[in-house]
């Protein structure tokens, strides 16, 4: 195993681990805010949870980008032939 492959695996692990931190914190805040809103206004629970789901999907996309970059580095690395 040469140096490029070792660095690629390391880089993939770093991309996923660091890339998961931000979205995790952001989703936590979003869910907390939605819980707060539902507790104050239970009759709006339907609208809030629908918006929450779409918002969570949007936030999650950043983590998925990191995952895709990690997969590209592992399986479609342009420097490994």
């Amino acid at each position: 195993m040469n140096l490029i492959e070792i660095i690629s695996i390391f880089a993939a692990a770093m991309a996923v681990s660091i890339g998961a931190v931000g979205p995790a914190l952001a989703e936590g805040r979003a869910v907390a805010a939605a819980m707060d809103a539902i507790a104050r206004q239970p009759e709006a629970a339907g609208t809030i949870s629908r918006t929450l789901f779409v918002g969570l999907a949007m936030i999650e996309t950043t983590a998925i980008y990191c995952l895709v970059i990690a997969l590209l580095v592992l399986f479609a690395n342009p420097f490994i032939h």
Partner: peptide, 13 residues
Amino acid sequence: FSLIVRLFGNVMS
């Protein structure tokens, strides 16, 4: 593009 990557990433992972 994010629509593609979101669905792909979630199901594939």
